Simulated assay, not measured.
Amino acid sequence: MFKHIKDMEYTVHVDRPDPRFANLLLEQFGGPHGELKAAMQYFSQAVGCNNPQIRDMLHDIAAEELSHFEMVGECIAMLLGPTDKVSRDFPAIHMALLSGGPPITNCMGAPWTSAYIETSGDLYTDLASNSTAELRAKLIYERLLQQTDDAGVKDMVRFLLSREESHNFSFMQAIETLKGTGTDANFRDSEFSKKYMNLSTGVGDSRGPWNQGNGIQYEECPNEKYGGPAQYGKDRGADSKGEVGPGYNDKTRNNPQYTQPKPITPNVPGQENQMH
């Protein structure tokens, strides 16, 4: 059951209309990293979640994202000001013409789409995606702060930015409880799971925790060491050292040693000795 409570999580204050910024704020109303996307993504994930604790968290955060969607929409409507009569150079003319309020689009007018929603059914993957989504939303709010001097609007944006960080923290902590499960479990990893391939050679090659330590093997010239016949073929079992057995003959076109066989000419009765 959903219940709309008329007291918003944050009471929106706008000092004066600013249609230009109203149009920019649409990015967080119907954009790919906005509040509606977040709410729909977390609700969708919660529906398919079999972990009761994680499902409860997803429902809580999804519900709050809907409240943020309401706040952003209210702010946009207040920033638009009266739309019964607007000038020809009105900075948000599409809103004045089409709806008199915020349409569910991004700031460029592209309509919201469910293609924004990312849900895989794997909790580890979904929570990692959610954490990234919160950081992207946080980044957009940071950039929006640079585009307005309205004290009330800036206060609301800072509140939303803080809540994005709170959600990111919750998702990151939940991920820690899922270590060793889902895509963080053994996904048939092989010896190549701990290899770093140095494929951008030249001045500026750098080393760091992404390519050294933690059992990582740094491959200086992987093309010379691994380029050649295919190393993976028919599945030989979960504990197999490799996918291809000894004496494997690569009969594919990407094998530089492979020679295309000549086509066999069919024998047609009565045409064994054709005249040319």
Rank of each mutant, 00 (worst) to 15 (best):
K154W: 07
D155S: 14
F159D: 01
S162A: 15
S166A: 12
H167L: 02
H167V: 01
F169Q: 15
S170V: 05
I175R: 03
E176L: 09
G180W: 04
T181E: 11
T181R: 07
T181L: 03
T183C: 14
A185L: 04
A185K: 12
A185H: 09
N186I: 04
F187L: 15
R188K: 04
R188N: 10
D189H: 08
D189K: 07
S190G: 15
S190N: 15
E191W: 05
E191K: 05
F192H: 13
S193Y: 12
K195Y: 04
K195N: 03
Y196H: 14
M197C: 11
T201R: 13
T201H: 07
V203P: 08
V203N: 14
D205K: 07
S206I: 07
R207N: 09
R207F: 13
G208F: 03
P209H: 02
Q212P: 01
Q212C: 07
G213L: 09
N214T: 08
N214C: 07
I216Q: 01
Y218D: 10
E220N: 11
E224K: 15
K225R: 14
Y226W: 14
Y226T: 08
G228P: 00
Q231S: 08
Y232P: 00
G233V: 04
R236E: 06
R236H: 12
G237V: 03
A238T: 08
A238S: 08
D239F: 13
S240F: 07
G242D: 11
G247W: 03
Y248D: 04
D250T: 03
K251F: 07
